Measured scan of single mutants.
Amino acid sequence: DHDVVPEDKFQETLHLKEKEGCPQAFHALLSWLLTQDSTAILDFWRVLFKDYNLERYGRLQPILDSFPKDVDLSQPRKGRKPPAVPKALVPPPRLPTKRKASEEARAAAPAALTPRGTASPGSQLKAKPPKKPESSAEQQRLPLGNGIQTMSASVQRAVAMSSGDVPGARGAVEGILIQQVFESGGSKKCIQVGGEFYTPSKFEDSGSGKNKARSSSGPKPLVRAKGAQGAAPGGGEARLGQQGSVPAPLALPSDPQLHQKNEDECAVCRDGGELICCDGCPRAFHLACLSPPLREIPSGTWRCSSCLQATVQEVQPRAEEPRPQEPPVETPLPPGLRSAGEEVRGPPGEPLAGMDTTLVYKHLPAPPSAAPLPGLDSSALHPLLCVGPEGQQNLAPGARCGVCGDGTDVLRCTHCAAAFHWRCHFPAGTSRPGTGLRCRSCSGDVTPAPVEGVLAPSPARLAPGPAKDDTASHEPALHRDDLESLLSEHTFDGILQWAIQSMARPAAPFPS
């Protein structure tokens, strides 16, 4: 592969990997390779389809078979030569091979799209000592099968071997295949498990690692696999990028399955594409389908809103127990993405979901129960707010008499603000006073009005108090039968009158 990737590009890729991570280095090298001529790309395919690569990765054979028959990708048995050289000459001794072996032994695996480039050397060096003999053996194999790289107009793939297949390693990572398949204008990513390549439709969760975000852009890794992070704060999961590491605690105790298979379609829109997988259930989501939507993949363990709600429900009964003089119970939860139609709101002032922060849900004790107040519409209280300059209440639009249902020339009671006709409430011909108009209920007259088809109010509507207090003497005590009587009149003013009279009014101040 030294004929494909020059030394300066190799060093530039290593520097970019240390600065921005393996995914960015892979993407940059792939983009550079696509700008080369067809001879360089053909050399790339020839390096990929060597015999030892085909033996190690069985899924490469179907890719090789898909090439046109007129494309010669065979390799000479006596060494490598550029395709432009007409004579089959043995190339001179390859010093770059020693360079590659020494550099890969030092860096474990470079971040390139060629056999030198995919593992994360920093994480491997940190986690190597417990498994040094086995990992050293794996390093000797890295130059042979560490990076199976493929690129063409139909298929483009980048393979990364790992030393996680050490025997006896619980939940060992089998390997990473960062794979971009450009077929019919689409893009897919796969993962390699035990020599087999699994596409998103049959993606397997190998051991402790999972394909957290099938994305090839942005600074985030394709698999949430930063070796420096180790395990999740809650004892979460091992990262795919942690090559040759000792077994780590796999999943939280509440995880239903340690080796679950995540779905390959969004649980909201039932469509495929780039998904984020939940650590607590097999569901996966688009970032845009979450509520609120996320802009980037959160670091650490992530769970959907259903799993978060289940966790909150487990903690909430203990938080609601009476604990005198104790601060509110704080339950730190990872930043969760909410699927459509589901929402768990945190306290005000918290950062938005999706940031690399930890939301704190506070379970406050329930407030003391209070008697429910009568629910009145805002339009129902409008007549009470229509007060004239002299303190006389004006008529609201649409006000109707509670007896006849007519809204023409209605009066407004100064005591309960109900609309009424003087002739309907006082049919006996009582003279109307000039000021202080009161309806039949507030004036103490319980004589029913002779209106055909309208039920008369119940005599129990009024329960006047002592006459010594004029204001308190007109406080009506309405009961269920009074409400039914008012409802039978089918008037809004009657219902409003009952609601206003049912509310307690402050006692009249004593004259000074």
Rank of each mutant, 00 (worst) to 15 (best):
P397V: 05
Q325S: 10
F492L: 04
Q392W: 13
Q325H: 11
P367E: 05
P256D: 00
C401W: 01
D482V: 02
A284S: 06
A399E: 12
G349E: 12
S502Q: 01
T491Y: 14
Y361T: 02
S245Y: 13
S299H: 09
R323D: 11
P322S: 09
E342G: 10
M355D: 07
I500R: 03
D279G: 09
A467G: 07
C442H: 02
Q260H: 12
Y361K: 03
E326M: 11
G241D: 12
P332T: 08
S502L: 02
P335S: 13
L352W: 15
R432M: 04
G405D: 02
D469P: 07
S379T: 10
L455T: 12
G405I: 11
P348E: 13
R345M: 02
T447N: 07
L337T: 10
G300P: 05
L308C: 13
P427E: 12
P335D: 09
A353G: 06
S473E: 06
E321W: 12
V446N: 11
P328I: 11
A251E: 05
R303L: 06
V387G: 08
E321A: 09
E274V: 13
P368V: 05
A508G: 08
C386Q: 14
E452G: 11
T311Y: 09
E320D: 09
R323A: 07
A267F: 15
L252S: 09
S245M: 14
G336N: 11
L411P: 02
L287M: 10
F492I: 03
Q393T: 12
E321Y: 14
A366W: 13
T491L: 01
T491I: 02
A284E: 14
S458T: 05
V451W: 12
S431T: 07
L385H: 04
G434F: 13
P347G: 07
V329S: 11
R323E: 11
M503Y: 01
R400K: 10
W422I: 03
V246G: 11
Q393A: 00
A419L: 06
L337D: 04
G434Y: 04
P249C: 15
W302N: 06
L337V: 10
T358S: 09
P450F: 14
I276G: 11
T447C: 12
A284N: 08
Q497V: 00
L275V: 12
P328F: 12
D493A: 03
W302Q: 12
E452Y: 09
S431A: 09
S502H: 06
P347N: 15
P348K: 10
